[in-house]
Simulated scan of single mutants.
Amino acid sequence: MEISGIISAIVIGIVIGVLGRLVLPGRRRIGVLWTIGVGIAAAFVGTGIAAGLGVADTKGVDWIEWVIQIALAAVGVTALERFKARR
């Protein structure tokens, strides 16, 4: 992966993290930086899953990849919030 690909994945990860947080109902008790970190991780993992499924490189917008990434971000935000609540 080239540096431009990594930078774009980070930017997309920020958007994915925010969208993953917005998908969930109610108030979230984790910070914005944690949300961004979860989004970046979800973007990288979601891209890998989409590539494994063969839906990562399509013509136009990769909607299935975006859905996978947003779902992973929502799961990650929920898991992180529950983990931090136990502490």
Rank of each mutant, 00 (worst) to 15 (best):
I12C: 10
V55E: 01
I12K: 13
E2P: 00
T47F: 02
R86K: 09
V11E: 03
L19P: 01
A50S: 14
D57E: 08
A74H: 02
V23H: 01
T47E: 05
V32H: 03
I10M: 14
I70N: 05
A79P: 08
G13M: 15
T78P: 01
A42Y: 13
F83H: 06
V11M: 11
T78H: 07
G46V: 01
E81M: 08
A42R: 12
I7T: 08
L53W: 00
D57K: 08
I10Y: 04
L24V: 11
V23N: 00
G39E: 11
I14T: 09
G54Q: 01
R21E: 15
G37V: 02
I10S: 04
V11N: 01
G60A: 10
R28L: 11
A79V: 15
L22V: 04
I68E: 01
R21S: 15
R87L: 14
G52V: 06
G52C: 07
V23C: 01
G13L: 12
V75G: 02
G54D: 00
M1F: 11
L80Y: 12
V15H: 00
L19D: 05
G60R: 09
I10R: 04
V11S: 06
I14Y: 08
I7A: 13
F44H: 07
V32L: 09
G20D: 08
K84E: 15
A43V: 00
V23F: 04
I30L: 12
G60C: 05
G39N: 08
G54N: 02
S4G: 03
A56F: 07
K59H: 06
I40T: 13
I64K: 10
G60Y: 04
V77W: 06
L53R: 00
E81T: 07
L22T: 07
I7R: 06
V32N: 02
I10A: 14
F44K: 04
G17Q: 05
G39V: 07
T78W: 11
V77A: 05
A51H: 06
A56P: 00
S8M: 15
E81A: 06
T35I: 09
L80K: 11
W66S: 09
G52Q: 07
L33M: 15
V55S: 01
I3D: 05
V45D: 05
I64E: 08
V15C: 11
I10L: 14
I68T: 02
E2W: 10
T35G: 10
A42C: 12
L22Y: 11
A56Q: 10
V18E: 06
I12A: 15
A73I: 07
W34L: 14
D57S: 08
R21L: 14
A73S: 15
V23P: 00
K84A: 14
G54L: 02
Q69M: 15
V38Q: 01
E2H: 04
A43R: 03
S4K: 12
T35Y: 02
L72N: 07
